[in-house]
């Protein structure tokens, strides 16, 4: 699962790079518009270590943000699954919060929380929270009738059991959503850093953009992609592992 993800990423990345280079040589563009392979390699040697550190910094925040939003989405999903007034209120509130674009909220967040760790974390969590919530709500609100029937008939159904049944039956779907939301958490953190932070790969990309340095951006994209592939692969592996243990105890 993990090596396959990395190989897939490498194929996509190098196809994209080849396309760029084809345009470069086709149009005889200078290294300023699209850097040549030698310059990209040179940039890689000069920046890879620093950028990797930045990517890991960004990723650590993305992971914490993701964990937060998973917890929040589970909480809201569990409460919002009920067809009660409170359930639908929670659902509506959750949808509304997401209706505001992050770029519009970001300045308020930065003014209130400054441009450090907390702002980056909050924005990452906000960006990856909604798709997670949608899936969790969808999963939690959908009864597994064939399993739940017995517990309802015999008055044994408790909310914990209901959540357990629905989570277990949809574990594969949940794993996919969680792995997918990792990309969003990462994108969210990068956006936050790009808008207003003093650290992370988003911040480095912003500086590279100031300097019109596409080479650095290509290196950053490479490192982001490879780190994300590893992380997502690990998440999928964890999902499979949890399922295996859950099924065999």
């Amino acid at each position: 699962m993990l090596p396959r993800r990395i190989v897939q990423f490498l194929i996509i990345y190098f196809l994209g790079l080849a396309g760029l280079l084809a345009v470069k040589y086709g149009l005889q563009l200078s290294n300023y518009v699209i850097p040549g392979p030698a310059l990209i390699w040179q940039t890689f040697q000069a920046e890879a270590v620093r950028y990797l550190r930045d990517v890991l910094d960004t990723m650590s925040i993305a992971i914490i943000g993701q964990v937060l939003s998973i917890c929040l989405a589970l909480l809201v999903g569990i409460v919002g699954r009920q067809t009660t007034w409170f359930g639908s209120f929670v659902k509506v509130a959750a949808y509304n919060v997401q209706a505001y674009p992050i770029v519009a909220l970001a300045p308020i967040i930065f003014i209130l929380l400054g441009d450090g760790f907390l702002s980056r974390l909050l924005i990452a969590a906000m960006i990856c929270y909604f798709p997670l919530l949608l899936s969790v709500l969808g999963i939690m609100a959908e009864p597994i009738r064939d399993i739940e029937h017995f517990y309802r008939m015999t008055g044994r159904m408790r909310w914990q059991l209901e959540v357990k049944i629905r989570a277990f039956e949809n574990l594969g779907k949940l794993t996919t959503v969680v792995a997918g939301s990792a990309t969003l958490a990462m994108a969210g953190t990068i956006v936050a850093e790009f808008i207003a932070a003093n650290a992370g790969i988003g911040y480095s990309i912003r500086i590279a953009l100031y300097q019109s340095d596409l080479g650095k951006i290509l290196i950053a994209l490479f490192l982001i992609g490879i780190s994300l592939s590893v992380y997502q692969g690990l998440l999928e592996w964890c999902g499979a592992f949890i399922r295996r243990t859950w099924e065999s105890n």
Binding site: I144, K164, I165, N249
Partner: peptide, 14 residues
């Protein structure tokens, strides 16, 4: 009164 039908399932975790 209890009602049971043939496509019911038991949870898979145990």
């Amino acid at each position: 009164v209890l009602y049971t039908y043939n496509t019911e399932r038991l949870p898979g975790w145990s």
